[in-house]
Simulated assay, not measured.
Amino acid sequence: MFLAAALSIALLQSAPDPALLAEVKAADAALFETFFERCDPARLAAQVTPDFEMYHDKDGVVATSGDAFVALYAKGCEAKKAPDAWRSRRALLPETLRVDPVPGFGAIEEGDHVFYERQGDGPEKLVGKAHFVQLWKRGADGWRVARILSYAHQAMP
């Protein structure tokens, strides 16, 4: 009897929280829409924590503070103003998405995403896929990403 009760509690605790999933998925979509499809450093600054860190299996340590990440982004925005500049888009693969709570802090998000590129106004092409883990912090002002691990990058044929 005790074992059955303990197992039931464990299963309930591991069940995904639909509200948490929806909140983190929305924060994720807003973050990547800002990063890839806008040039709005102030908006990005409001989406990352001051102590933000990002690690990438191809680019290494991308940033160790929110300010550094936003500055890198702002520099990239300037380059995108050229008519023939390369532009990228990220698409989450929703069937791979997993969100787990971090009590008293926020949530851990994990999944896969694909990337598309186009030059200027040219046609968009699928170019890559990767796995990610993101640590989100929930505060009075909403969700902010604190850590990003981006790895297992693969080129797409």
Rank of each mutant, 00 (worst) to 15 (best):
Y55A: 04
C77Y: 01
M54G: 05
L92W: 02
C39N: 11
D28W: 13
A30C: 09
T64H: 09
A27L: 07
Q47N: 12
Q47I: 08
A91W: 03
A82S: 11
A63K: 11
L21Q: 14
R43D: 07
E37S: 15
Q47T: 09
P50F: 10
C39G: 08
S14R: 15
T49W: 05
V24Y: 00
E33N: 14
A22K: 14
A26V: 08
M54P: 03
P83T: 09
L93G: 06
S14G: 05
F52C: 12
D67G: 12
R90K: 11
V48K: 02
V62S: 08
A45V: 09
L12M: 15
L20I: 07
R87V: 00
A74H: 04
F36T: 06
G60W: 03
E37K: 11
L72C: 01
Q47W: 05
A91Y: 04
H56S: 02
A46R: 15
K80I: 01
D59F: 12
C77D: 02
E78K: 13
A74F: 04
S65W: 05
Y73C: 02
A68H: 00
E23L: 12
D40P: 08
D17H: 12
P41G: 09
D51I: 04
G66V: 06
A79P: 00
T64E: 15
A91R: 14
D84A: 09
A10G: 13
D67T: 15
L72Q: 14
S88M: 11
A45H: 05
K81L: 09
D84W: 02
C39M: 10
D67V: 13
S14V: 11
D51Y: 04
P41D: 03
S65Q: 03
L97D: 03
